[in-house]
Design a binder for these strands. Structure first.
Lengths: 104, 104
DNA sequence: TTTATATTTCGATATATGTCGAAGTTTAGC
DNA sequence: GCTAAACTTCGACATATATCGAAATATAAA
């Protein structure tokens, strides 16, 4: 674990902060199950297009979901792309690897 | 990643929150380098006994370090044990595994 | 028993965060 | 152009967090 001496503290604490809110963590987990990392969630596949759907049944408003999605994006955990009225989102796979390495 | 549907949201968000503060993350990282996970940092080994030392050169007071250590312990990330005047602390290895699994 | 060292607890305070609802923006379709 | 759907931005507010310094506690040592 000598690699830890060179860890980018700011980068990692930002990522952990993004995952520290239960609602945000739930959204993140929904993304990991609705699409494989590196794959966009489109309206084309059987699973629903992500953004609005991601917020369903979480007990928060759309504006709150939007805010959380922005935080996850800012932390580099997810990618976003508008497609028509909707906004697709998907897990950033490199960041996931970074985090996996961190703990192993 | 289907395991994510059964993730204990509260448990994980608490762990991520503990690591989301830069000072706390630094303390955690110092622990991972000063002792192997599952091994106590004692005054016996060459490396200094952990608790007070952990807070050095972080730019915060002792009371702040104490508070952060308590948070890390509450999140299940570290273990504590008083030994004389000092308090030893070490990484909780099971939690580390839990987190490693989470991201891989 | 007095003193020193290590750590914790307390109260205060400034700042950050999560959430809402209302209003704004973007795109699609009539 | 008008309306609806999906999403974002804004301002407000309540709550949580990080930090400090002072006082308290625990242990060791003189």
């Amino acid at each position: 674990m000598s690699k830890f001496s060179t860890v980018n503290i700011k980068r990692f604490s930002t990522m952990f902060k993004a995952l520290s809110n239960p609602t945000r963590l739930r959204i993140f987990l929904r993304l990991t199950s609705c699409c494989e990392p590196g794959t966009k969630c489109t309206a084309d596949n059987d699973l629903t297009s992500c953004i609005g759907e991601l917020g369903k049944n979480l007990g928060v408003t759309a504006s709150t979901v939007s805010h959380h999605i922005k935080e996850l994006h800012h932390a580099g955990l997810i990618e976003l792309q508008r497609k028509g009225q909707k906004v697709e989102c998907w897990i950033e796979p490199e960041t996931l690897h970074l985090l996996a390495d961190f703990f192993s």
